[in-house]
Nucleic acid binder design. Sequence first.
DNA 1: CCGATATCGTTCGGTCCCGAACAAACTTGC
DNA 2: GCAAGTTTGTTCGGGACCGAACGATATCGG
Lengths: 200, 200
Amino acid sequence: MTRTHRDPIASSAGSSSGALSRYAAATAAAEQQGSASGDFTLDATEQAVAERLQGMEIDMSAMAVVSNVYRAANALRNHLERTVLTKHGLTWTGWVVLWVIWIWGEIESRHVAAEAGVSKGTLTGVQKTLAAKGLVDRTVHPDDARRVLLSLTEEGERLMAAVFPEFNGVEAWMTTELSGAEKRELARGLRALVQRAEEA
Amino acid sequence: MTRTHRDPIASSAGSSSGALSRYAAATAAAEQQGSASGDFTLDATEQAVAERLQGMEIDMSAMAVVSNVYRAANALRNHLERTVLTKHGLTWTGWVVLWVIWIWGEIESRHVAAEAGVSKGTLTGVQKTLAAKGLVDRTVHPDDARRVLLSLTEEGERLMAAVFPEFNGVEAWMTTELSGAEKRELARGLRALVQRAEEA
DNA sequence: CCGATATCGTTCGGTCCCGAACAAACTTGC
DNA sequence: GCAAGTTTGTTCGGGACCGAACGATATCGG
């Protein structure tokens, strides 16, 4: 993680790596002051982007939003995996699936997939992994032999009860920088994106 | 995608699926009006969450932020894959890697990994895939035999020139709902999260 | 000059991830 | 009641993804 070399990319990257988001940051900063280009000392990445995109009709702010969202999601996920999940032998997706089942108590397979945001093909594998760990039980639906009901084993319940507060504590820590109003604004903007992106 | 069944989960899900984000939405809506709990008709998911978490000390707004960010990232990625990338035989990660190389012209492997936000182990595979498609060239660094320089082939250049405007057009469409100020706020909030999550 | 140390990219094992194809089970129309 | 259509979960192929272990290469200290 410590990048100690001296070439342009690494030095410009510093601790905040990622071309897209640094670019996005500069774009937003420039917009904020209503400035045209040239007023800021762009680092190597932003200069490269600007040169490459010169003459093209590009929506820079849209680009900034998409890349920042994606980057933030990765950062949050990786941090939670590193600080909480890995320690308990869980993956991100496994955790989400477990969480959904925990909330519902007993729930059909297809609903878990929808709630967790994965395809049914993926769920088959994840669920198999969790069952092998002894965290999840499978039952055939009494009224429909196609369906499968998932629920937590006692060990699964114990795990959730132990890990969830810890997980949420890290979530809280990661968002302490934001005020209540900022969190609301953030959520609002994100929901607007989701709505657009998910509309058929 | 059309969920036409009549059970509580599906009907509450509607077109916006995903327990976490619906929950997050309700949380944010409640906050917005400064109300305590009980003033709103919660749907099945939120009721389940509320019941499950009753008595636990949970930071709901932090939970809402994390789940919304993750959900939005997935929605944006899936939509861009479906509408733009798949058509050109590209995956999301392949696209990001290609983009980084396109911007830099010629760049060392390790930098591509850092900029694209993947591990070096992952990059080896992605790069191999792109090279097999004839989109990327590999050269050994003249001064250091350990390093590998990546660049686009002519076909890679052609592809980027053709696909990037299309990609950005969809990005623009997905963010049209947001005003300039909203986009800036969004980017600001997300960067705050990234900073926290990435700090060692 | 040469051993200790650091860095770069690859390999490997395990998991995730999707869409397409599929079989089994249910529902609907006639 | 049964053929046609739909839904559910599985399987499969191709790819992404990470961390750990590794070999090759480079650098630093003496």
